[in-house]
Design a protein around this nucleic acid. Structure first.
Lengths: 230, 230
DNA sequence: CGCACACTTCGATAAGGAACGAAGCATTGT
DNA sequence: ACAATGCTTCGTTCCTTATCGAAGTGTGCG
């Protein structure tokens, strides 16, 4: 009936916390598979599927099929601009209890995003790897340098195997809390896994938050010159 | 103690057609009373009241009380910017049938907005009155010049009476379809009424659309130098 | 004072949609 | 061929919320 732009319908699409979280994860412009988006938003694959269908139907996302994976990405930069315009007038989420506040702080500091690392720590590690020229970045992906290949070998990360996997190899994922990209994709997952194996980070029960241990803090300082973590 | 911006909550606020319509009516930055906003959105005063309370609570609008009227306006220009960012990615009207398409075109061309005139014709008349220096505009309101006072007298519009009414006298109302302001408030209503009385425009049954008659087209050309209407 | 008006609050109703379990489809790997 | 994986569709449950009638608060006017 209305000939005017149907602002309400788009806003309604973004107005669900789950869908807003998915869009936030895609803000960097990369493509992410449905499963990864489901994990980011902390919901079941079925629910994620219906949300993603709505976002595609509403013209906010596009989907490309690759094998049995379906990759979603923002349809246009304008979608990201709209999200950010909303963020500018959005209230900062209110903190109810001291307990919730502590949990929010922990989550902001270090958490898993699917199977890689996000939060202050995730961003710091990514930035350090760029500073040390282990990685170089372009808009869509990270590239591993010669130095980076050596570094990965030293950590027991088999880049050849990672490249063979169906997943994207090393994509940036824009961090909610930090507004900076962090390392995602197969390489991001492998790095996180090694950090767990070495005991530098440990999972916190019933939460996506992870805890940076004392050896971890020391190790990151020594190996990646990261001094800024608390 | 800030956490992530709660984008979903704002988007949810804008994501109701009624509230989106209210925001659209306020895009120009002027203040409008609750009743006028209810009429714009075509809902009852009770419903409007609950919606306005939510918009104020969500930080999108501010309210000032004047006598028994309550005037609402956008809390900040950023709110308008967010609305427009959404409009940029919003679908234009999905046109199902030829009939619906014709109706949409008619609505875009000329329609009532509350009791004044919107659409291409509404914007053209407002622009013509500015061109002929019958009106001058500032950000919040229109002012009637000496020439404008004479012109109104010639049309049988009693400005003194209009100014006495509790309504805003002459406010700009941003047009959804044209993205230009048109004349609203008591004067806008009076002008529309006179156009109806002269038979220059006639109502189309069961629609907000109005039809510009042949005498109307000729009259607007003669009296206001409007030549651009079809 | 009494009445009209502008707006809000309360209560009940009805519609919409978000969530997940179960099952289905397609692709990949053995 | 069979199983595992990634994702979607279907059906059900449950909660949220938009809406309006009725009643209440406060203002202005004669």
């Amino acid at each position: 009936m209305h000939t005017d732009p149907d602002v309400a319908s788009v806003a309604l699409l973004i107005g669900d916390p789950t869908r807003a979280a998915m869009l936030a994860a895609l803000l960097g412009g990369q493509a992410l598979p449905a499963g990864e988006l489901a994990a980011c938003a902390q919901i079941s694959p079925q629910t994620a599927s219906t949300h993603l269908a709505k976002l595609v139907g509403g013209g906010l996302l596009t989907m490309t099929t690759t094998g049995r994976h379906r990759y979603y990405r923002l349809k246009s930069p304008e979608v990201g601009a709209a999200w950010e315009a909303l963020a500018r007038i959005a209230p900062r989420a209110r903190v109810r209890s001291l307990r919730a506040s502590e949990e929010a702080r922990a989550l902001r500091f270090a958490r898993t995003c699917y199977d890689h690392l996000a939060g202050v720590v995730g961003v710091a590690i990514t930035q350090a790897m760029l500073n040390k020229q282990l990685l170089t970045a372009d808009a869509q992906t990270y590239h591993v340098t010669e130095a980076g290949t050596l570094w990965c070998a030293g950590w027991g990360i088999d880049l050849g195997q990672l490249r063979q996997s169906r997943r994207h190899f090393a994509t940036p994922c824009l961090d909610w809390s930090e507004r900076h990209p962090h390392l995602a994709g197969a390489l991001g997952a492998a790095v996180a896994q090694k950090l767990f194996e070495r005991g530098w980070i440990v999972r916190v029960s019933s939460s996506r938050a992870v805890c940076l241990t004392a050896p971890g803090r020391e190790g990151l300082r020594r190996e990646l010159n990261i001094n800024s973590l608390q």
